[in-house]
Simulated assay, not measured.
Amino acid sequence: MNDSGFTRIGVVGCGLMGSGIAETCARSGVEVLVAVSSERSAEAGRRRIEGSLNRAVVKGRMAQAERSSVLGRITFTTELEALADRQFVLEAIVEDERAKADLFARLDAIVDDPDAVFATNTSSLPVMRVAGATGRPQQVVGTHFFNPVTAMPLVELTGCVHTAPETFERTEAFVTKIMGKEVVRSPDRAGFVVNALLVPYLMSAMRMAEAGFATPEDIDRGMTLGCAHPMGPLRLADMIGLDTLARVADGLYNEFREPLYAAPPLLLRMVEGGLLGKKSGRGFYRYE
C-alpha cells in the first residue's frame, strides 16, 4: 500500500501518452492494466513500450532483468469492463471532448470502487466538461503528463469545481511518491499553466514562417542559440504533433477568444494535408 491508497491502476489508451504512463507506473513497481480498442492497438502499444525499455537497456539505464519485470507488470485488455476492480483509472485517449466524456460515462458505470479516482490526461480541455459525464465529479481530476512521459518530470494537476480535496491529495501522492514526478497545480482553464504560455509562442513562430519573415531553420536557430532553448519552436511543434497543437490551439481560442491562441492558416493546411510532424515523417522538417 502507498500513501495514495492506489494499488490497482488502469490506463485507457496506449498511444504515445498512454504507453508512457503505463510504462512509468510499471517502472515504479505498480501492476497496470491497459485497456485499448483492439488487438492491433494492444500490439502497437506493447511494441511501443518494449521499444522504450529496449532503448533504456542499450543506454545502460536499465538492466535486462528489470526490463522483463517491468513488462511483466503490464497487462492489456480490449474489454473496458476489465477495469471494474481498478482504484485509479488514467485516461489517455484522443484529445476530443465528446470522446473523453463518453469514456468517463462508461467508466462511471463500470468501476465498482465507490472511492475510485478518474484522471483525464488532457492538455487543453477543462476538466469539468468530462467530469460532468460521471455521477461522481468529486473524484475526477486532470493529470497533464508531458511527452515523453518516462523522461519529462512534470505533471500538471487540475480539477473541476467539484473535485474533492482528498482526490487532489491522493492523486498528487501517487504522481509524486510513486511515479516520481513533480506537480504544479492549475485552475480549471483550457491550456492550464504550460500550454497557456507555450501555445501562443508556437503559433507566433508559425506566423513568422508563414509570413516569410524568417525560415523555420533560422527561427529555431535563433531561439536555441539566442535564448538557450533546448529545441526551437517549430521543431518542438513537429515533435508534439501538428494535429495535436491545432486541437489545443482551438480549445484555447474557444475558451479565451484571444487572437494569440488562434491556429494560423498554415498550421490548419498542414494538418489537412497530413503533414503532422515527426510522427508522419514531415512537418516543418522532414524525418526519415
Rank of each mutant, 00 (worst) to 15 (best):
N2C: 07
D3L: 13
S4Y: 01
G5E: 07
G5T: 09
F6N: 01
F6S: 00
R8L: 11
V12K: 10
V12Q: 07
L16P: 03
L16K: 12
A22S: 15
E23P: 04
T24D: 07
C25Y: 00
V32W: 01
V32R: 04
V34C: 09
S37L: 13
S38Q: 05
R40S: 15
A42Y: 11
E43V: 12
R46E: 14
R47H: 10
I49D: 12
I49P: 09
A56F: 14
V57K: 06
V58C: 00
K59G: 05
R61K: 15
Q64H: 04
Q64L: 12
R67M: 14
S69A: 15
V70K: 13
V70D: 12
I74K: 11
I74Q: 11
E81T: 13
A82L: 09
A82V: 02
A82K: 11
I93L: 10
V94P: 00
R98Q: 15
D102V: 03
L103S: 05
F104D: 03
L107Q: 10
L107M: 10
I110F: 08
I110S: 06
V111K: 07
D113A: 14
D115R: 15
D115K: 15
V117K: 04
N121A: 05
T122M: 02
T122S: 15
S123T: 08
G135V: 03
G135M: 02
Q138R: 14
V140F: 01
V141M: 05
G142F: 07
G142M: 08
P148T: 11
V149P: 00
T150V: 13
P153Y: 10
L154W: 03
H162G: 00
P165F: 04
F168N: 02
E172R: 15
A173M: 01
F174C: 09
F174W: 10
V184D: 00
R185M: 06
R185P: 00
P187G: 12
P187T: 08
R189K: 13
N195W: 06
L197N: 09
L198H: 05
V199A: 06
V199P: 09
L202E: 06
A205T: 12
M206C: 02
R207D: 02
A211G: 08
D220K: 03
M223H: 06
T224W: 06
G226D: 07
C227V: 02
C227Q: 10
C227M: 14
H229R: 02
M231N: 10
L236K: 07
A237R: 05
G241L: 04
G241R: 04
G241H: 03
L242F: 05
L242N: 03
L242R: 10
T244S: 14
T244R: 05
V248D: 11
V248P: 12
G251W: 00
L252D: 03
Y253T: 05
Y253N: 02
F256A: 14
R257D: 12
E258I: 01
L260H: 13
A262H: 11
A262F: 03
A263M: 03
P264L: 09
M270Q: 13
E272T: 06
G277K: 04
S280E: 09
R282C: 09
G283M: 11
Y287T: 10
